[in-house]
């Protein structure tokens, strides 16, 4: 990454942080309903991997903690916020909500709420890319606890047997809601579980975006060159509760303090300040500008957008007027 890249990355991660914090406020104001899973603390994961990948070209799929992954692929943050507000202008026309952001134009293939659901979908996208002779790859971001689903093992097995171009990124934040990983999982280091499938697997620091980027570059190159699947484990931490309805009472304060000292944004900022690339004032100005953009463009758009019409409740259940439903087509 060049210094210019690093400055952009810093801005994007700070944007991600502020975007999610603003979602929190909007939820408290009851503008956003349902389940809301936020990303603060984990920004370097999506950022670092997508720096190494080709956003908008490679296909990305993930779970319910999906706003930032969609934006990293190129989704318009206004449409993402409007989706959270349940508006017709939302990325899923208000039918999806926070857990179901989609932006197929930018190859963001969706957020899914069933833990482990995207594993085989990602392998399938990879199968399709292979059949079409595409040079794009399929990237699946999921959490640590998802790896206890059968789909994890079924998908790794199929990806290896059929040599599919899929990168599985495990954002290991040490918890599945309130259950710490060592209380639910026999082998705590997730990359070790992958050896049963003869797929290359590494574990790196998920808080240092440059480390994530380097590891992801190796991973992405491996997959894109036709060598088959790859597993990348990123050690990370979420600052807030699992979702807005989570009290977050199960984690030790010491543990939280320890991780807050390794904040991905602050670490990169300090590195850039030390290198004389930016000043703290530059950073503050950047922050102010981001907050302004979120308020004056993104929130404004979401607030002012119309809700879907109840007359269109049944739209999108099935294809419109598919000729083969009527038969007799040649």
């Amino acid at each position: 990454m060049t210094p210019a890249d690093k400055k952009r990355v810093l801005r994007e991660m700070l944007f991600a942080r502020r975007f999610e914090e603003r979602c929190y406020e909007a939820y408290v104001e009851r503008k956003i309903g349902g389940f809301l899973h936020l990303y603060p603390g984990q920004e370097a994961c999506a950022q670092g991997v997508m720096e190494a990948a080709r956003p908008g070209h490679d296909y990305v799929i993930t779970g319910y903690r999906d706003h930032i992954h969609a934006i990293k692929c190129g989704a318009d943050p206004k449409a993402v916020m409007a989706e959270l507000y349940g508006k017709e202008t939302g990325s899923s026309k208000g039918r999806g909500g926070s857990m179901h952001i989609f932006d197929v134009e930018h190859h963001f293939m969706g957020g899914y709420a069933l833990v482990g659901g995207p594993f085989p979908l990602a392998a399938g996208i990879a199968k399709g890319l292979k059949m079409k002779g595409s040079d794009a790859i399929s990237i699946c971001f999921l959490g640590d606890a998802a790896n206890n689903q059968g789909t994890f093992h079924e998908s790794l097995n199929m990806a290896k047997v059929w040599n599919l171009p899929v990168l599985y990124v495990c954002e290991n934040n040490l918890y599945g809601i309130g259950t710490r990983i060592d209380r639910s999982t026999a082998v705590v280091d997730q990359y070790k579980r992958v050896c049963g499938y003869d797929i290359p697997a590494v574990q790196v620091d998920g808080q240092d975006v440059e480390v994530v980027y380097q590891a992801a570059k190796t991973a992405v190159d491996h997959v894109r060159s036709g060598k088959g699947p790859y597993f990348l484990e990123l050690m990370t931490y979420r600052y807030r509760g699992h979702s807005m309805s989570d009290s977050n009472a199960y984690r030790a304060k010491d543990e939280e303090r320890m991780w807050s000292k390794r904040d991905p944004i602050i670490m990169l900022r300090d590195r850039l300040v030390d290198a004389g690339e930016i000043s703290l004032d530059d950073y503050k100005a950047m922050d102010t500008e981001i907050l302004h953009q979120i308020e004056s463009e993104i929130i404004k758009f979401a607030e002012e957008s119309p809700e879907p019409s109840v007359n269109e409740l049944e739209k999108y259940v099935l294809a419109d007027n598919d000729p083969y439903v009527r038969g007799g087509v040649r």
């Binding site: 799929i61 085989p120 392998a123 399938g124 996208i125 990879a126 199968k127 399709g128 890319l129 399929s138």
Partner: peptide, 9 residues
């Protein structure tokens, strides 16, 4: 699930 994912594209 793999077939469904492939059908997406």
């Amino acid at each position: 699930g793999l077939a469904i994912g492939a059908s997406f594209i």
